[in-house]
Design a protein around this nucleic acid. Structure first.
Length: 567
DNA sequence: GCCGTTTTCGGCCCGACTGTTTTCAGTCG
């Protein structure tokens, strides 16, 4: 099996753990697989090197797991997973995606014959779930809501997965000028089908992909091949060089934007499709996207601005060349280390950031976050002391913390402790189920706190898994605006929170921070996804606080605090 | 299954919350 990624190793380990949990025979063995997965997530070592060294030095990967993983890399089969999977109905694994369901509940459902998401939805509706021992009417209602959410997002992937698969395809299609298309090109937070366009013929594509893409099939007469890569649906569209612009435009818009372009073309006597731009059956040369729009006499919308939400505003937004890029970011704020629930030491995290040419802003958890090894006041002081020592040694590093917003909107550390930090990220990690009124009040109070620099992951949503907490987000953003509080665009591909739609609406009234929330050194590379959100919102470097140098950012925090004490 | 010894066996993160119970199990972060 060629090109096994670390992500796939992590995937089979976690799936094995889930299955063992449902089987319920060896809970600690399940935890062992999960621990091994965590270690592999944290390492930066390439898979080939891991196999070559027998996974030496990777914590929690012992002899047995190392041997099974090595076999997986060569054969594509992970023996413990196969064995566990043979004992469980195939749809049961999907139930793990439903919030509120863990191994025990899933086991109970499965024993009752509820063994897939679709069956669960029916059973939650018709009262079968509520009648089960350990469940009730309230559980059934919660489960129904959660399972409907999961089913509604079932055919989508995170942007990170979409970009990974796109990159893989593009590498395989080398020589045919492969270009990113579809949702991933536009930087949408989730991606349905991974799309790539090329210059060439169906035969050119088939020659390169036949051995690599599962279920590769031509979709004649459309200039399109479909298939799957790592289980993700893909489409490869091809055109000769003279029609490539029309193809890129048709494959790179939202449904609505494509439809509007085709309607415009039709109104002017053209026929626009992936096959090219035609008039009276005659193909007009359109080697680039702009050739199409020029012929139609309309401006070319940048890919970032092709959603319906941009219709009314896109012409007032900055051109793509002025939008923030990954290269503009000079600091990586809101990161975690072994002081709380991160996997690496502060020096290791700083070193990785420095290798990326950036300073590191720490953001370990506060005391209320027990589950995440949150820091007591004593440990917070020791943490700040270590950071000050590292700073004296010349490391590019700032002292921050991710401080819990408590139920009443107050912060988890007293002001005198917050003042010992260079900056403060305030986030919600508990009491997700307050009613919208109380939740809004809570967050308004938090962003109005004189020592809060940044509001972390404002809605708490997890893409494809759970919606954010009930909240009047506009009211919270208004309070952030009034208090000069920075709003985070959390770049973790499972979060991408603040949503770009809100960032777009509030772009002129807020300052943003594109933060990785990295828990491992490799996570510091997630900026790419947050930048995609920022670009869809039309943000320039001047609107993103971590494009500032370390000194400039400290000055920003000082000004922010001074302005509040004056006000 | 892994780890670290009290060196080959016993322990493996835990407090808050929720909905179900009738005193607590299961899930989450």
């Amino acid at each position: 099996m060629p090109d096994v990624t670390r992500k796939q190793l992590v995937g089979v380990l976690n799936t094995t753990a889930d299955l063992l949990d449902v089987l319920g025979q060896e809970p600690f063995r399940a935890n062992a697989y999960r621990g091994a997965a965590r270690s592999l997530e944290a390492t930066g070592t390439p898979v080939a090197d891991l196999v070559a060294t027998g996974f030496a030095g990777i914590p929690k990967v012992g002899k047995a797991i190392a041997a099974d993983l090595a076999a997986f890399v060569t054969t594509g089969t992970f023996a413990p997973l196969e064995e566990a999977a043979s004992q469980v109905a195939p749809g049961v694994l999907g139930l793990f995606r439903v919030r509120g369901l863990g191994p025990k509940k899933i086991r109970a459902l499965w024993d009752a014959g509820i063994d897939s998401l679709e069956v669960l939805r029916e059973a939650a509706r018709d009262g079968r779930v509520a009648a089960l021992k350990g469940f009730g009417a309230k559980s059934a209602a919660t489960i129904l809501e959660a399972v409907e959410f999961v089913l509604s997002t079932q055919d989508r992937q995170h942007l990170s997965t979409g970009l990974d698969v796109s990159d893989t395809l593009a590498a395989w299609l080398d020589g045919l000028e492969p270009r990113l298309a579809g949702d991933a090109r536009r930087g949408l937070e989730t991606v349905r089908t991974v799309r790539v366009t090329v210059t060439g013929s169906a035969e050119d594509v088939t020659a390169r992909l036949a051995e690599r893409v599962e279920a590769l099939a031509r979709l004649d007469p459309k200039p399109l091949l479909t298939g799957r890569v790592d289980g993700v649906p893909v489409e490869i569209a091809y055109a000769p060089a003279e029609a490539r612009g029309a193809l890129d435009l048709m494959m790179g818009g939202s449904t609505e934007y494509r439809a509007s372009l085709r309607a415009q073309a039709k109104a002017q006597g053209f026929d626009l499709s992936g096959r090219g731009l035609k008039r009276a059956g005659q193909l007009l040369p359109t080697p680039a996207e702009a050739d199409v729009t020029r012929a139609l006499g309309c401006p070319l919308r940048p890919a970032e601005y092709r959603e319906p939400e941009h219709d009314a505003v896109w012409e007032t937004l900055p051109p793509p060349a002025e939008l923030v890029t990954v290269a503009d970011l000079r600091g990586l704020l809101h990161t975690h280390s072994i002081w709380s629930d991160g996997a690496a030491t502060l020096p290791e995290m700083v070193e990785t950031a420095a290798r990326l040419g950036r300073y590191l802003g720490t953001g370990d958890h506060s005391r209320a976050a027990h589950y995440a090894n949150g820091m007591s006041i004593e440990r917070l002081r020791a943490y700040v002391r270590e950071i000050r020592e590292l700073q004296r040694a010349g490391l590019p590093l700032l002292a921050g913390a991710e401080v819990d917003i408590l139920e009443d909107g107050s912060l988890d550390y007293p002001d005198e402790e917050l003042l010992s930090l260079d900056y403060v990220v305030a986030s919600v990690h508990s009491h997700f189920t307050l009613d919208a009124g109380r939740q809004t009040e809570r967050l308004v109070r938090a962003v109005s706190h004189p020592l809060v620099t940044i509001l972390g992951h404002p809605t708490g949503h997890l893409l494809l898994r759970r919606p954010g907490y009930a909240l009047d987000l506009d009211a919270v953003l208004a309070a952030a605006s009034a208090n000069g509080t920075v709003v985070e665009i959390n770049a973790n591909p499972a979060r991408l929170d603040l949503d770009w739609r809100y960032a777009l609406r509030w772009r002129d009234r807020l300052t943003f921070a594109i933060n990785t929330d990295a828990h491992v050194p490799a996570g510091l590379g997630d900026t790419r996804y947050g930048v995609a959100v920022a670009r869809k919102a039309g943000l320039t470097p001047a609107q993103v606080v971590n494009t500032l140098s370390q000194e400039e950012f400290l000055a920003f925090v000082r000004r922010q605090r001074e302005a509040r004490t004056r006000g």
